[in-house]
Design a binder for these strands. Sequence first.
DNA 1: GGTGAAACTTCTAATAA
DNA 2: TTATTAGAAGTTTCACC
Lengths: 159, 159
Amino acid sequence: MAKFKLDEIDHQILDMLIENTRTPFTDIAKKLLISAGTVHVRVKKMEEAGIIIGSSLTLDYRKLGYSFIAYVGVYLQNTSQTKFVIERLNAIPFVTVAHITTGKFNIFCKVRAKDTQHAKEIIFRIDDIEGVSRTETMISLEESINDKKRLMHDIFNQL
Amino acid sequence: MAKFKLDEIDHQILDMLIENTRTPFTDIAKKLLISAGTVHVRVKKMEEAGIIIGSSLTLDYRKLGYSFIAYVGVYLQNTSQTKFVIERLNAIPFVTVAHITTGKFNIFCKVRAKDTQHAKEIIFRIDDIEGVSRTETMISLEESINDKKRLMHDIFNQL
DNA sequence: GGTGAAACTTCTAATAA
DNA sequence: TTATTAGAAGTTTCACC
């Protein structure tokens, strides 16, 4: 995967858009002392380059009644079953993230649920997938850090 | 945390905006056979209710040279150190997520890095935090599932 | 609640520098 | 690459259902 070169202006534009996707280009232009047209052209280029994949809303799932987060480590009987198990995981509602991993677990996933009862149902469905030998659940008591914006800063402040 | 009641229209609006935050309200209105003003008012209400917290860009960090993802389980010497350790974690660049958890680990975090060398530096910084007894790293070989959009569907298709 | 239209703001593409 | 500009498009408000 090729590394794409962004300059300071691109960085600032991304910074403002990461904070709020709907920031008007005119506002960005004013702040960076460039024209709105330039902002438009640069954003378009970053989209074409595939740097900007898309945009999404951040919702408060707790307010929708979904306050429960757990990470579930999955042990497989055999790694050849990985692809199959991922497919099955993908079909289980409320499994929002899954990674194939090295280390302790073969697959590692994130579950969002209403409460412990609801989470139990989801985790049991994971346990029941053919090829899963056992799972280990880590319940989140608090999401203490979750900061996309800072990652951008970290990337740009690297030497 | 109170549960907020969203109707089918709100749901559809969120669905379209989760897919692309910049979807014009006029497009949404056309599709849902309501007026753009209504879309505007409903979005504003969801923002005021705190359901919509904000919006953010989705970037391809691999294209920026950051292809490495790892999850790090942190064991503490004593849970009373949790708050302190979280603060320290927050000061380490490229630690993008951290949860306080029950189960195996006391704290669980996600690291985004350039490569294994870079990741090593970050993980060593985590190991060095006072109060951390040891860590366990799970390297992501593949992010197989990561779907916010589906979560919304799951929530709305619940009985 | 919702609508439709007016007033206002922003976007976008073409042209020019 | 960037700036300007002007027409197109989108947003937001408001009087009225």
